[in-house]
Design a protein around this nucleic acid. Structure first.
Length: 205
DNA sequence: AGCACGATTAACT
DNA sequence: GTTAATCGTGCTC
């Protein structure tokens, strides 16, 4: 276990697919009033370019998508289904729209805060979805375009123990309704096997 | 100005 | 397995 290092902009300025894969096992941290809240990333998806018809950037630059065209290492936060926020990290060079959707993490810090926001559900289900983890971390539009790599950033990612290849599953991105092939099935979803961190069915360990 | 739909979730049958 | 909740976004008229 090496000492954690905050991921730099150069990490996010790589192939979106590689960033999504390598974010598994990394530590997502939000600081609230000096307290660290977060955990280890267990699921992520890559969205890459205007040609990716599953990516919002298929519409080109719009008020919503302009964040993805900005520099890497910033948050892209958007609202959907009339009630849910989604957290993404902008990747690749400025001018090229791409991002990684964070779909789940295993809580390790700020458990009491997370429980106060997600405690109606069993622990196993506190942060196992993209909208759930935004609830747990109280992330909303205020964090759109937020710089994860600024020296004083209160939302960032730290390096973690890498996940061995045999504990990672890949597959199609989820939640699409009207997305054509090959984008519907392209395996740009990465997930750590369910029992890698969670030891009990209810997530208590 | 109006419309269809969504990178989801929780509560039902 | 099915469905309501709930509103910003992007597209069409």
């Amino acid at each position: 276990m090496v000492d954690p290092i905050r991921l730099k902009r150069s990490f996010f300025n790589q192939s979106t697919i590689k960033v999504a894969r390598d974010l598994l096992g990394a530590r997502l941290v939000k600081v609230e009033n000096g307290e660290r809240i977060g955990g280890l990333i267990i699921e992520a998806e890559a969205y890459r370019g205007e040609t990716d018809l599953g990516c919002h950037a298929k519409a080109g630059i719009t008020p919503r998508t302009k964040t993805m065209y900005g520099p890497p290492g910033h948050a892209y936060v958007y609202f959907t289904y009339g009630m849910h926020w989604m957290l993404n990290f902008v990747t690749e060079r400025e001018g090229f729209p791409a991002a990684v959707l964070i779909r789940g993490f295993f809580p390790t810090e700020g458990i009491q805060v997370i429980e106060s926001r997600r405690g109606k559900q069993p622990r196993r289900y506190w942060t196992d979805g993209p909208a759930k983890l935004c609830q747990a971390l109280a992330i909303d539009s205020a964090f759109n375009e937020y710089d994860l790599c600024a020296p004083d950033s209160q939302l960032y990612v730290e390096s973690g123990d890498p996940i061995p290849e045999n504990y990672v599953t890949t597959g199609p991105r989820v939640g699409f309704n009207n997305v054509p092939e090959p984008w519907l099935s392209i395996p740009w979803r990465f997930e750590v096997v369910p029992d890698y961190y969670y030891k009990d069915a209810d997530g208590s360990a």
